[in-house]
Design a protein around this nucleic acid. Sequence first.
RNA 1: GGAGUCGUAGUUCAGUUGGUUAGAACGCCGGCCUGUCACGUCGGAGGUCGCGGGUUCGAAUCCCGUCGGCUCCGCCA
Length: 602
Amino acid sequence: MIENLGNLERTHSCGALRKEDVGQRVTLMGWCAKRRDFGPLTFIDLRDRDGITQIVVNQENAAEAHAKAKEVRGEYVLAVTGEVALRDEGARNPKHATGDVEVQARDLVILNDARTLPFQLDAPATEALAAEELRLKYRYLDLRRPQLQGNLRLRHRLLLEINRYMDEHGFTQIETPNLIKSTPEGARDYIVPSRVQPGRFFALPQSPQIFKQICMIAGLDKYYQIARCFRDEDLRADRQPEFSQLDIEMSFATPDQIFTLVEGLFARVFKLIGVDLPTPFPRFTFAEVMQRFGSDKPDMRIEGMELKDLAPALTETTFAPFAGALGAGGQVKGMAVRGGAAMSRKTLDELQEFARRYGAGALAWIKLGDELSSSLLKALGTETVASMAEAAGTAKGDAVLIVAGKPSVVAASLGALRNEVARREELIREGVYAPLWVTEFPMFEFHEDDGRYYSMHHPFTSPLDEDVPALERAVNGEAQLFAGLRAKAYDAVINGVEVAGGSIRIHRRDVQAIVFKALGMSEETARARFGFFLDALGYGTPPHGGIASGIERTLMVLVPTENIRDVMAFPKTASAQDLMIDAPGEVDQKQLAELHLKIVRD
RNA sequence: GGAGUCGUAGUUCAGUUGGUUAGAACGCCGGCCUGUCACGUCGGAGGUCGCGGGUUCGAAUCCCGUCGGCUCCGCCA
């Protein structure tokens, strides 16, 4: 029978009681995690966000409570009043912080009942969790699991620590609007129709980028915000359509000042999980990490496994895949895998399949086992293969994985293989946190599909001072110079995860105009899209720069987890749906009419 | 937009070469049990094999389509 709470007040949480509390009369409230029935004696594991306390209900000294305990089922909501008792030596449970004691119930109130759950919260460790689809539909049940609650509390502590740190360093949190204007650059926008302005639309911000720069022009000097961002792009294990960023911008800032600020922040944040992050973070240029690791976010927990140029060992080769690649301005690069000679043919086949996803035509290999073996032996002969192995920096027992092709394909496939092989062969150092800065990103990126350059970071990113003359020449016809232009852009990477990215911005109207021109934007287009911003740049804009750090990505490293849905309360599926509230949903005709919208079905 | 993978009891899974009544564990329901904490024990209920179509004497199993979850490429900073 369900009873009212009345004036009954909770005295302790279910994780609070210890030996020192023995003898106290307490009232606990929580959910029945488990009931163990011994006839006249019934045990109930009472759970709340703080822990689990064992309740003992004995027919001999609490007949009424015992009768009610018989009715209790899993996830019933209970209030229990009784005395804290020390458990016998052999009856203690070291798995729970409260395991030395138990509560001898005098009164038990059933505050609410519960239907049988669609899945078990405390499934045996031998079993997998219930299907994620089911857990997302009943998110409020899945969130009862201590693991997820712990993640959300860590998220809270992260946000709190960020706010403290930014405040201590003189930053002001400023909220910027969520209903803004769509810009065609960058990610797809989520669009919101205006009722008041027929045929016009707001966009949800992909980031507060323009607004934070406007804050600098406004003289606010040091801005930050924990901002919600929206991007209507396909999802991944680490991407959701809405997510949070720590957004930072400061005036008169050098990259060094921003690096120091962010290093201090991450050092503070990692203390939350008891880790002393080594500062300052080592710095690498984009060109260097791409050449050595094939990735702009290398995992530095992996020792070695650097990409080596094998072209010098192949100067005289006629082997078509290699000669062809080298002749066409491509590369042949190899990566040594420590102990890789033990890799099976099956493993190598799987790795080739893996490499092909990144555009590699094939994955060649050399194994330095008791005998030299290689997929290239017939084509190249022992001598060439041996010199390739040497160029890759191998020792006996190692293997070399080799990809030939365009530099972008070689980097992408070997870069991905580096992570994949390290994971499979357990070459990732456990318990290590390896941060770095990647600097001097390219200004522009060529898109094959429409044959033009796009900003790699965003259109407000400043070029390196020494590259400005080349930028001007590139805009004035020497288009081949675009590819080599470098930006004052940087990323912070920890354990192969890009946890922050930013740049020094363009603060001069003339330089901004050149960059818009480089992006193929006419003056009219630039005015139409960013006229207000170009105007603002003309009224005394200080040099400024900043950075944004993904809250979820950072949490994924801290927890750690591979699944972004583990670090947010109400995530969406890979097809951007919320299974709990069944969103997105349809709206009725009246709402559509008010918004001046008609649905066109195709 | 493309690829891979999964979908069988409430849940996690098994299900052989296409063949009789689709199984196990956990959970659920009922009985017994005074020291359990993966309680034990006796009994019981529970299935549109994701959905639609096809092949076949016969389909959870083979084929085609489709829906959904997850992962990856493209996309996205």
